[in-house]
Write a protein that binds this DNA or RNA. Sequence first.
DNA 1: AATGAATGAGAGTTCATTCAT
DNA 2: GATGAATGAACTCTCATTCAT
Lengths: 210, 210, 210, 210
Amino acid sequence: MLPGKPKFRRRKEARPAEIVQAAMEVFAEKGFAAAKLEEIAARAGVSKGAVYLYFETKDDIFRAVVDTAIAPNLQVIRSMAAAHPGPFADLVRGIFGHMGGVLETTRVGGVAKMVIAEARNFPELARIWHDQLVAHALGAVTDAIANAQARGEVREGDPRLFAIELISPLLLSVLWRETFVPIGAPSFDIRQLAHQHAETMLRGMAKEAA
Amino acid sequence: MLPGKPKFRRRKEARPAEIVQAAMEVFAEKGFAAAKLEEIAARAGVSKGAVYLYFETKDDIFRAVVDTAIAPNLQVIRSMAAAHPGPFADLVRGIFGHMGGVLETTRVGGVAKMVIAEARNFPELARIWHDQLVAHALGAVTDAIANAQARGEVREGDPRLFAIELISPLLLSVLWRETFVPIGAPSFDIRQLAHQHAETMLRGMAKEAA
Amino acid sequence: MLPGKPKFRRRKEARPAEIVQAAMEVFAEKGFAAAKLEEIAARAGVSKGAVYLYFETKDDIFRAVVDTAIAPNLQVIRSMAAAHPGPFADLVRGIFGHMGGVLETTRVGGVAKMVIAEARNFPELARIWHDQLVAHALGAVTDAIANAQARGEVREGDPRLFAIELISPLLLSVLWRETFVPIGAPSFDIRQLAHQHAETMLRGMAKEAA
Amino acid sequence: MLPGKPKFRRRKEARPAEIVQAAMEVFAEKGFAAAKLEEIAARAGVSKGAVYLYFETKDDIFRAVVDTAIAPNLQVIRSMAAAHPGPFADLVRGIFGHMGGVLETTRVGGVAKMVIAEARNFPELARIWHDQLVAHALGAVTDAIANAQARGEVREGDPRLFAIELISPLLLSVLWRETFVPIGAPSFDIRQLAHQHAETMLRGMAKEAA
DNA sequence: AATGAATGAGAGTTCATTCAT
DNA sequence: GATGAATGAACTCTCATTCAT
């Protein structure tokens, strides 16, 4: 039969992931409402109709994007939780060393931006992000701090607030990259920030020398 | 025949501000694209058509909202810039005391969220926010830190990164309030966070005792 | 009472005519639908609301404009009808001499354009123009031709078609001026055309020399 | 379950022409502004949205309509230009014989009306009509007349004005049909007019017998 | 009488979703 | 399964008309 069909066609099981990947890019660039299905389909290399073979609605795709972005970050959290025992300074330096790399190489920034922007329109997603990711991470860090306080390594103070103080520059970094770098504002070195902040916080939280 | 209630009232001077106010709420709740003109008009207590007496397009309203939110914050920046001379600790404690109040009482959070979400679709607005607000604030704090370093009050380290470390929990607070509080996540006391963070940073940045 | 009211205010009886005049210009320029009431009011030197003191609707203004344009042209027709008796050549030369001037100095062109364009949307107006103006004029000329034929001055042929042949370059002239002159197309001298056409038609309609 | 009638049918290639055809009718009837997209779509047998698969804006459709109406008439002009050589009388009789038929069977009248009505709002279209159609036709006829004058077949006189005298009853015919026939005014036979006018003009332009 | 701010029906346009092919 | 032409609900924006002043 003449040329015949191509021997290798893309595995159909790969499609949903490709669509989610494409959607993540478009949503991160344009926001949920301004993202057009046609563009998502085009970037995924499929037709508009094909998207509907794998997802019911545009909302669904959005949910899948946001859900998908959780998994890789769960790892980070687990490593945090696992690190409890050692001395507090090691934990902090370890986490910041690790996180700096993760934030620079993944697209968490874009997804975080979307979650923040659409939290009111997709409250389930905000809840999922909070419950599965943010609360866990914050909780793990808070616990570690509380433990360190109990061990006398960290001065008194609300451990949850300490945790927020610790984490917030990382959030600011990724949002900055999404918001101001595209318009030509100066970027800054996330790893260096992570390093410097770890030192600052360790000193700032340290039990004052008698 | 009693007068009855008039179908409408002429309020030419007050309208634009009322519309901007209403728009700020709706945009903050729904995001730019999902905000419907009809709802903005309704919340402002006018008809759809009346909005177009004062603004050319929906984009225009958005711009006005974002612009409007800058003014009240400029004050804060000026107070930062003015505060240079005194000892560094006083400056930091003063700023955080002030900012905690501003963030709790104004709607900066909602506008910041919008700027982050729509930066790619409205780059001029991101630029205005960066140039008029963020860069100024960051610059003022950076300068103060550099001065303090020169005076030997603050340890070595990149002063711009120190500035980011200082400011970031405040950003996280307002975004948290916009994102996770509406879904029932626990809030936290911004003033208390500001207070604790001021102490942490002062210790963390202090010149180490020889 | 301080400055007092101006001593001379425009007579209110003059208003409707001023509005009609302004409307004629705007309608001729933009067409009925694209003409904005605000512009008509502005050109008439009154407020939008004032227009509604004299006219019920935009349609009404249009009707008034088209009606108004009939009167001055009725004169022409009467002069045609009155001229019956004399020799046919005198009649034709007289009419064309007169018409050339009228067409160059009045705005019939603009109104004719409007009647043509809006005949389907305002059939009463088309009917009024037809019955009061066009049919009269055509009838008068047709009669004069029929008479001339009866007197042996004009060759055989449908007198109504002869009338159309006579009149049509005048219509073309005014429409040309409205349509193609504004875009920079070359104009042409209507008086000269009228003169030349009168001669051509007199020769062309003449009883052939035996 | 019998197949039932499909909700829609795919007719990608045929659509644009069908839409232009439908639009021509609606525009000719209502004028540009009063023509509603919904009606154009309905007459073309498609939904409102489908129109936008083929045309960007309503203006675009209008342009396509006016452009489309040029092609069939170009033929006429070419035949005019080609006919130069023979005796002038043959040329004129030939053209009028041909034109009478074209005008009666095509919708040029409606389009001409639209061009006249919207010339100020769509000057490009007026220019296209002038340059591609009107100026060509007028030029061809003017040349033929000038040649005939050179050959001594036609009396002295401005050849361009002669051309206008020749053509104008045809314009009047089509506009009459668009304007006054719909309101019940008597029509007239375009072919007969063309025939009679050809004879009148030939006599009227003839070199007077010495 | 006169103004022009305010109204709201209605039009053009977009785009998620469907379905004939 | 895959496509993309076709749909139609929904949204922004316009402007003739109204009415408090």
